[in-house]
Computed example of a mutant assay.
Amino acid sequence: MGYQYFKTSLEHWLNQEGNSQKILQIQAGYKKARLSQILSQVLDKKHEKNNTPISYDNQVKIAYGCGYSYFDFLEYGKNLIDGKTPPPAEPRPIIIQSPQELTEKGLDTEAFIPIPLYESGKVAAFRNGSAFNPYEEATDHILIHVRELEGRSKHRLLALEVGGDSMEPLIPKGSIIVADTDDKEYIDNKVYVLKGYMDGVDNYVQIKRVRKADNIQTILLMSDNSKYPPIAGGKDWNALCVGRVFRLWRNSLDI
């Protein structure tokens, strides 16, 4: 029965808006011809009686490409057969080396937005605040479906791979966050990418929660990890803020 759960999940996932064989190919890491062969073996009802199950490794790989662990993917199919709501997928970004890959991979350029992904986090100071150094090249780009951008598709967006643990458990080390550099309105107790300092390098950014006490003007940069004390961020919010964090991908295996 487990394989039937798998088949039900896969067929349902492929029929959901925004999902496609092309997306599965990229996220699961298959060549186009190989994935087509596997899907034909799994979903071709004309030869269903003669079809043997695909290997366990391929089932795991496809489940991951759909955003699930293998056992969650089976649970997905079981819930569908039982008439229940399937569990949500684990969102993960599609990473490409350049925006040109959108066309090369045959993806809908209207549906997917490429966002530059940075590792170093260096920024340059400008009159109207802080922005990423135009000479700092993005290591890769991540693709986000336009419906996930919450009306921000025309904004200046950037992605960062988180290198520290100061925002754990909310944002573990190795997570990828997306910030909107056009969204700099101060909202107390929210998370932003902010200009910071590290090892004597002053053009750097950090991800912190911001607080402002009633009796002082200084903005406090707060870590969710209690082992890190608050940092005084100064009074000039415009110079401090790079952009608000609005999207996060993290490894949920340890949750």
Rank of each mutant, 00 (worst) to 15 (best):
Y3L: 01
S9A: 15
L10S: 03
H12E: 08
L14E: 04
N15F: 02
N15M: 10
Q16A: 04
K22M: 09
K22D: 11
K22Y: 06
K22I: 13
Q27I: 04
A28F: 05
Y30T: 09
L35S: 05
L35Q: 03
Q37Y: 10
Q41K: 13
Q59E: 14
Q59S: 10
K61E: 06
Y64V: 12
G65N: 08
G67P: 04
Y76G: 04
G77Y: 07
N79P: 00
D82M: 13
K84M: 12
P86N: 07
A89R: 12
P91D: 12
I94P: 05
I95F: 01
Q97A: 14
S98K: 14
P99T: 09
E104P: 00
T109R: 10
T109D: 14
I113P: 07
I115K: 02
I115C: 01
L117K: 06
E119L: 09
E119V: 04
V123N: 07
V123P: 07
R127V: 15
Y135H: 10
T139E: 15
T139A: 14
L143W: 10
V146C: 11
V146E: 15
L149C: 07
E150L: 14
G151V: 10
S153P: 02
K154Y: 06
H155F: 00
E161I: 06
G164T: 09
E168H: 00
P172H: 02
S175T: 00
I176M: 02
I177F: 02
V178S: 01
A179T: 08
D183S: 09
E185M: 08
I187V: 15
K190R: 13
V193D: 01
L194F: 02
G200N: 11
Q206F: 02
N215Y: 15
Q217C: 08
T218G: 00
L220I: 02
L221T: 04
M222R: 07
M222I: 15
S226D: 12
Y228A: 01
K235D: 14
A239I: 05
A239R: 10
V245G: 00
R247G: 00
L248Y: 00
